[in-house]
Design a protein around this nucleic acid. Sequence first.
RNA 1: GCCGAAGUGGCGGAACUGGCAGACGCGCGGGACUCAAAAUCCCGUCCUGGCAACAGGGUGUGGGUUCGAAUCCCACCUUCGGCACCA
Length: 849
Amino acid sequence: MKKGAYSFNKIEKKWQQFWQQNSTFKAQDCNASKPKYYVLDMFPYPSAQGLHVGHPEGYTASDIFARYKRMKGFNVLHPMGWDAFGLPAEQYAVESGTHPAETTRKNVDSMRRQIMSLGFSYDWDREVNTTDPGYYKWTQWVFLKMFNSYFDETEQKARPIEQLPIPDGLTEAARQQYIDDHRLAYEAEVPVNWCPALGTVLANEEVVGGLSERGGHPVIRKPMRQWMLRITKYAERLLEDLAEVDWPESIKKLQIDWIGKSVGADVKFEVPGCDWDIWIFTTRPDTLFGATYMVLAPELDLVDMITTAEHKEAVDKYREEAARKSDLDRTDLAKEKTGVFTGGYAINPVNGAKIPIWISDYVLISYGFGAIMAVPAHDTRDFEFANELNLPIIPVVEPEDKEQADLVKKGELCFVGDGRAINSGQFDGLSTPEFKEQITNWLAERDLGRKAVNYKLRDWLFSRQRYWGEPFPILHAEDGRVLGLSEEDLPLVLPEVQSYKPSGTGEPPLANIDDWVNVTLPDGSRVKRETNTMPQWAGSCWYYLRYLDPNNVDRGWDSEKENYWMPVDLYIGGAEHAVLHLLYSRFWHKFLYDLGYVSTKEPFKKLVNQGMILGEDGQKMSKSRGNVINPDKVVADYGADSMRLYEMFMGPLEATKPWNMQGVEGVHRFLQRLWRMIIDEDTGELDGAIQEADTDEATLRLLHQTIKKVGDDNESFGFNTAISQMMIFVNHLTKQTVRPKSVIEKFILILSPFAPHIAEELWEKLGHTETLAYESWPQYDKELIKEKEIELVVQVNGRIKDRIVVSAEADEDQIKQQALASEKVTAALAGKQPKKIIVIKSRLVNIVI
RNA sequence: GCCGAAGUGGCGGAACUGGCAGACGCGCGGGACUCAAAAUCCCGUCCUGGCAACAGGGUGUGGGUUCGAAUCCCACCUUCGGCACCA
C-alpha cells in the first residue's frame, strides 16, 4: 500500500476522536441566534446481537440530514439513547442468573461502540437510558400524573383529579370508588391475554394470531387485575390531530384504522316481562326493519337473566366453551359460526316484532354493548349465521343493480351497500343516508335511541408480570384503597431479587420480596406495594422530552428548553412502530399538553420510515437463514463512510431492498477515486492537478448543477440520487488535468454529510484547520446551471427521427424551422404537409402529419 | 376477506408537472498496463434482425384517453406490508 493511499481506518478513528474531544456536535439550548432543528432517531433496544444493518439505515439518513441542517445554519439537536427495559435481558436473567442491569450495561456499551464507529453526529452528552433510575423516576412521575387525573368530557381534556366534580350524597366508600373510576390510570379486572410460557399478560397488539409476538407461544383469555390507561378518552383527538402532522399517508391510515371510529346509533330493544332493556350499537339504523334476531356476546351478564330454564343447559355449555377458547381458536373457528338460542325474545322498536335472542362468540364483549341486532340481509356475518342456523332473512335495502336486487329480495344475496329502503313501513323509498338520519331522529324523539359514536380503540393494558420494568409508584391499603406515592418518593427503585422467574400463577417476581412489598406508613397503617411493572412502551413514550434536559434532577424537563426545542422536526424510524409506539407517545404527549407540561399538541412534526434491508438472498435477515450482515465487518473492510454511502445508495429510503456486498465495493471505489482525484498517493500531499485556477465552463456548470441537485435531494430524502449526482461529478472532474481548488472545496462540503470522515480529512489537506461541520452549505448560481445549447429530439408522429442542437434562447418559430430543415425529417415527411407541430422547449419537437 | 404500498435490463435502481425509457452503481464482455495476477484506466452492454447505416419491439397483463403514457383512467394478475368477526 502506498504511503498516501486512502486509509479509511486511520482517518475514521482520527475524526471520531476529534469530534468527541472538541464536542463538535454539542447542541446549544435556547440559542436564539439560530433557528432550531430537532432530528430524532427511534432509539434502539440494546440487544446482545448488537446492531444489524437495518439500524444504521435510519441513523445514516437522519445524520445526513442533521449535518446538512447544521451547514444550513440551524442549531441542531440530534441525540441518541437506549430503550433498555424489556424481555430479552430478563429471559437471559432467568436462564443464567445474571442481573438484567448487568446484561443491559454490557449490551449498551457494545452497541454504543458500534454506533460511534459509524461517525454519527450525536450529542452524546444527552444520552438517556430508560432503565436508569434518574430516567424512570420521570416515567413513574407521568404515570402518577395520570393516576391523579381525570378526563373532562366537556372540555375534552385531562385535569387534576382534585377538580373532579363528585355527585352529592355519596358514602365515603362510594366517593372513593367514583374517583377511582375516573382516573386516567386505573385498575380493572379484565379478561387479558395471558401467556403461560412467558408468565405474563400481553397487550392486544403483542398478540399475533393467538400467539405471542415474542416467541410465538400460545395465549389464552383470563380475567386478571390489571392496570389500564384510558387512551380511549383521547380517541377523537388522536384522530383529529393527525391532520396536523406531516407523516406518510399510509401510516396515518394505519392509525385511523386502529382507532376505528364509526358513527351510527344506539338503539333500545325492550324485553317483554323485564324492566330492563337491551341496548345495541349499529352503523345501519336504516336496516332496523330487517332485524330478525339479536345476538349477545356469551360473556355478557345479561345472558343469565334472559335465558329460560329449558335453554339453560345448552347456554351454560356454550358459554363455558367460549370462555375456554383462546383467541387463536376463536379466529380459527371464525369460518363457521356457532351459537345457541337463549329462549328469550326482544321487541323491535320500529315495528313491534318479537325477535329471538341468541348468543354467539362472533359478537365481541368488548365493543359497543356486547350485543347486536342481526340484519342477515345486509350484514355478511349475520347472513352467515342466519344461514347456518336457519333464521329468517328480511331484505330492507334494494340495490340499484337489477340483478343484485332480485337476489337480495329472494334472500340469496347479502347486500351491504347503499340503496333504497323496502319493507320499512313509512320509510320505504328513502335512500340509505336519508333513512339513517330520519330513523335516528325518529328513535330519539321516542326515547328509543340516539346518535352514537364508537371506536375500536381499547384502553391500554399497562401492567406486566415481569421484573425488568418500571415499578408502579402505587400502594395498596388493607381496606382496598389504592394510593399513589408522593412525587418526593420517586424514583421507586427496582429492588434486587433472588429469582427472576415469574411465579407462573400471574404473580410477578417482585411479589416474592416481602420486605419490599410490605410497607408501614408513618401513621402506622400497613400497605403493600404494587408488584406489577410497566410495559416496555412506557419509557419510549416520552424519551424525546428527556433529551431536552437529560440531567435535570428536579424536573423531567425544563419548560424553557421544551419551548425552544419542541416539536421534534424530523423523526426517522421503522414502520413497525406505526401504531404502537407512535400512538402511545402521542397519547402521553396530549396528556402532558393538557396539564401544561408541553407546549405542542403533537410531538413529531415530520415522520419518515426507513424500509427493511433484506439479506443478499432477498430474504428477511435472520440467524437461521445465515444471511445476516454484520455492520462491524463492513466497517472494518470498507470503512464507515463506505457503509453510510452504500446504505443510502441502495435505493429509496422507504423501500425494502436487498443487501449486496459488491454494491458496497462500488461506493468504496467511488471514495477511492475521489481520494486519488485530490491526493497524490505516493506523497500523501495534494495532487498537482489541484490548483488555484479558473474553472472551465462545463465544470462550473456541473458543479452548480450538483450543488442544486444534492441540496434538493437532501430536502426530500432522495439520498440515492444525490449520491449518483456526486458520482457523475467525480467522474467528470477526474478527467480534468486541472482541478481548481475552489471547485474541490465546494464539492467536499456537499459530500461531507454523507461521508464525513473522508470529507474532514480532505478539508484539512486542503489547508483548513477547523472542522467543516459548521461551514455553510455552498450556494448555486441559477445562471451558471443553464446550458447554452440544447439538444432536442425531433419526432414525426411520435417516432424519433432526428436530434437537433438549438441555442437556449431560440424561440418556437426558430426551433420549428430548424426541425423542418433536418434531412431525416424531410425524408420521414415524404412530402406530406404537417398538420400540427408541437414544440416543447428544451425537450422535443413533434411533427404530426 | 378488507386496507395500504409496489411491479422498469442479468441485479439494485433513475426518469421534473404526460415529452429522448434505462441516469448512477453492480455484474458481464473486450482492450490497455503487467513476466503474471490484483488494483487501476479505456471501450461496450434493454431485446430481436443486420458487418453496418438502420429497422422493429419494449416499463406485470388487457383495454382506453392523448400529437405523445413507465407516468392519467378502467379491468385484471403477482409480490410485499398491515388488519382480521369492531355490528
